[in-house]
């Protein structure tokens, strides 16, 4: 996998749906185009919901992978 420059990691572990998504949306809303946000979530629903949201809003999913007992989901702000 190619190197990704993470602008900021958002640790939303321990937060329940839709908390992790909400944290990500906040960051993306405040951020600049091209920023990459990595979300850490222990909520398994995030692995399905966040890519769905990213797709719907037209941003770019960089990766969505399991890391032990949580998920790492990176999203690039494209607009």
């Amino acid at each position: 996998m190619s190197e990704v420059n993470i602008t900021k990691t958002i640790d939303a572990r321990g937060s329940y749906c839709p908390g992790p998504l909400m944290e990500l949306v906040k960051a993306i809303k405040r951020g600049q185009i091209g920023d990459v946000y990595e979300l850490l979530s222990s909520d398994n629903g995030s692995a399905k919901d966040v890519p769905e949201w990213v797709n719907k809003m037209g941003h770019e999913l960089v990766y969505c992978r399991e890391d032990g007992d949580f998920w790492r989901i990176a999203v690039k702000k494209t607009k």
């Binding site: 749906c17 839709p18 998504l21 909400m22 949306v25 949201w53 809003m57």
Partner: peptide, 11 residues
Amino acid sequence: CLVSSVASMSG
């Protein structure tokens, strides 16, 4: 409220 909040975050 969950549906409302996700809907508003989804535009």
